[in-house]
Computed example of a mutant assay.
Amino acid sequence: MIAEEEPRKPATVHQIGCDLSAISADELHHRIAQLEDEIGRIRAEIIRKDASRKAADSLFGPKV
């Protein structure tokens, strides 16, 4: 069988609260890395949204 013809392993998607007992330590490390990447992505989006809100507030906020 050629490598291109081998069935691909489905992408691992972590679900919060799922049973972890049947998952290898290597896979758990991989999931942690994925979740840390996602946390970073979410934090970056929060920073962008806060900056947009602050810019809007400076334009449309109350003038004192």
Score class of each variant (00 low, 15 high):
Lys63Leu: 04
Pro7Leu: 13
Ile42Phe: 06
Thr12Ile: 13
Ser21Ile: 04
His30Lys: 11
Ala55Gln: 04
Gln34Tyr: 03
Pro7Glu: 15
Leu28Tyr: 00
Ala3Thr: 15
Ser21Lys: 01
Ala55Leu: 09
Pro7Gly: 13
Lys54Arg: 09
Lys54Met: 03
Met1Asn: 09
Pro10Thr: 08
Arg43Asn: 07
Asp57Asn: 04
Pro10Leu: 12
Arg53Trp: 02
Leu28Asn: 08
Leu35Lys: 12
Glu36Asn: 08
Glu6Leu: 15
Gln34Trp: 01
Val13Asn: 09
His29Leu: 12
Ala11Glu: 15
Ile39Tyr: 10
Lys63Trp: 00
Ser24Glu: 11
Leu28Thr: 12
Leu59His: 00
Arg48Ser: 14
His29Asp: 08
Ile2Cys: 10
Arg31Trp: 09
Ile32Gln: 14
Ala56Tyr: 09
Pro62Gly: 02
Ala51Tyr: 03
Ser58Ala: 15
Leu59Asn: 03
Pro62Arg: 07
Glu36Arg: 08
Arg48His: 14
Ala33Ile: 12
Ile23His: 04
Glu6Asn: 04
His30Gln: 10
Arg48Trp: 05
Asp57Ser: 07
Arg43Ala: 07
Glu38Lys: 03
His30Asp: 03
Ala11Tyr: 03
Gly61Tyr: 04
Gly61Lys: 08
Asp50Lys: 06
Ile39Asp: 13
Lys54Pro: 01
Glu36Gln: 08
Leu20Ala: 00
His29Gln: 07
Gln15Tyr: 06
Ser58Lys: 03
Glu6Thr: 07
Ala22His: 07
Ala25Thr: 14
Asp19Gly: 01
Glu38Ala: 08
Glu45Arg: 11
Ile16Gly: 04
Gly40Val: 07
Ala55Thr: 04
Lys9Asp: 12
Lys63Met: 02
Asp50Ile: 02
Ala11Ser: 12
Thr12Ala: 11
Phe60Val: 08
Thr12Glu: 12
Lys54Phe: 01
Lys9Gly: 02
Leu59Thr: 05
Ile42Leu: 15
Ala22Phe: 06
Ala56Trp: 11
Ala55Tyr: 00
Pro10Ser: 11
Arg31Thr: 07
Ile42Met: 09
Asp37Asn: 02
Ile32Tyr: 12
Asp57Tyr: 03
Met1His: 02
Ile32Glu: 13
Ile16Lys: 04
Cys18Ile: 05
Ile42Ala: 09
Arg43Asp: 14
Arg31Asp: 01
Ser21Gly: 01
Ile23Asp: 01
Pro7Met: 12
Phe60Cys: 07
Ile16Thr: 13
His14Val: 14
Ser52Gln: 09
Met1Gly: 07
Glu5Ile: 09
Arg41Leu: 11
Ala44Asn: 09
Glu38Ile: 05
Lys54Ala: 10
Arg41Thr: 15
Val13Thr: 15
Pro62Thr: 11
Glu45Val: 00
Ile16Asp: 15
Ser21Val: 06
Glu27Met: 07
Met1Glu: 08
